[in-house]
């Protein structure tokens, strides 16, 4: 391989630019990527978002559930994917709580339980102080076994979860009174980074019991391709990568971004009289009154734009080098 390369670069007379590109240290590409992502963050670049069909379907599925419905949230991801998935998790929880749904959190990934705790602490507790543990939400925690856990709890929840994460028997958790399996839930919300996750929920829950389950998924870009075939029969909605998160945030915030509880929480966090935590003088958060944490996805679309343009440029440049070297090589 290297012989071939040396030949191509030493025998073909290129222009200086092509020569630079062809022999460029890849660390220049790394630096370009760092700047493409870093600068928009510092410059607070934030392009507008308009929701697409999948985000609309996801929003509608939660929105049309009767208030107080039982929702099972499975947090099947870890910090490695939180950049993409945490904004979805935040928006899911805020949307469900704004509708008054009862929320049960579980995880098929060991670190997913931590992400669920984090979401409860940063979204549910400050913006929905009326939500009481056990009554309005409960933490089931993590269980080992991957899809085996789903397989069991679709018919017998207690077999896997005899207690919640803090050790309270499920029979004593008011919002789970009379629940013997997860078919009693009106909706399953899955935030998924891979195996086990959305695919397994589609296989072991919605495919096996099509009439019993309604599944919505928030997923990473990497695995979303594999999940499209399940929509719309086995999954009623899907948020794809950071774009899906940003679109969904727009929909949720338009309706529930500035509730009285949020305004009060913002005041407390910011502490300055009359100034809410989102109304930043420097213009970080254009949506007035909406907490920054509920706009994470939209903020990340700025770096995304510039980095995608860089990727396209790199591929084009790579091809310019290829064709330049190939055509000159051919003429010789």
């Amino acid at each position: 391989m290297s012989t071939q390369h040396t030949q191509s670069s030493t025998t073909v007379p290129h222009g200086a630019f092509i020569r630079f590109l062809a022999t460029m240290d890849r660390r220049w590409i790394f630096l370009a990527m760092m700047l493409a992502v870093g600068m928009p963050i510092l410059l607070k670049l934030r392009p507008p978002e308009s929701p697409g069909p999948l985000s609309n379907a996801t929003f509608a599925a939660i929105e049309h559930l009767p208030a107080g419905s039982r929702v099972l949230l499975s947090f099947d991801y870890d910090p490695a994917s939180e950049g993409e998935l945490q904004p979805m998790a935040n928006a899911f929880v805020h949307h469900c709580a704004s509708k008054g749904h009862k929320l049960a959190f579980m995880a098929l990934w060991p670190l997913g339980a931590q992400k669920a705790n984090e979401t409860v602490n940063t979204v549910l507790k400050p913006f929905h102080p009326e939500y009481k543990l056990g009554v309005d939400y409960c933490m089931l925690g993590y269980k080992a076994g991957n899809e085996g856990v789903i397989k069991v709890i679709v018919t017998d929840l207690l077999q896997q979860y005899s207690t919640d994460a803090s050790g309270t028997p499920l029979g004593e958790v008011p919002m789970l009174k009379g629940v013997s399996n997860i078919q009693a839930f009106d909706l399953i919300l899955n935030v998924s980074a891979g195996y086990p996750g959305a695919k397994e929920w589609a296989q072991y829950a919605t495919s096996a019991y099509p009439d019993a389950f309604s599944l919505l998924v928030g997923t990473t870009g990497v695995q979303s391709n594999q999940l499209y075939p399940y929509y719309p029969t086995q999954m009623k909605g899907m948020l794809v990568a950071i774009k899906g998160a940003a679109e969904y945030e727009v929909l949720v915030n338009a309706k529930y971004g500035n509730t009285p509880a949020i305004v009060a929480a913002q005041r407390m966090m910011s502490s300055r009289e009359g100034e809410s935590a989102s109304e930043n003088a420097s213009g970080d958060t254009p949506e007035s009154g909406v907490p920054a944490i509920l706009q994470e996805g939209q903020r990340r679309m700025g770096p995304q734009l510039i980095a995608h343009l860089l990727m396209v440029t790199l591929i084009v440049l790579g091809n310019v080098v290829y064709f330049a070297t190939r055509s000159k090589g051919a003429t010789r």
């Binding site: 992502v37 939180e82 950049g83 993409e84 990568a241």
Partner: peptide, 27 residues
């Protein structure tokens, strides 16, 4: 590609925000 870039922007947000305090989205 889209996913990987988001992960990078999350880490840079941590460095610029939680660590360096150069950005402050939540004010």
């Amino acid at each position: 590609v889209m996913g990987r870039i988001t992960l990078l922007s999350q880490r840079l947000e941590f460095l610029f925000g939680d660590w360096l305090w150069i950005i402050d989205p939540a004010n």
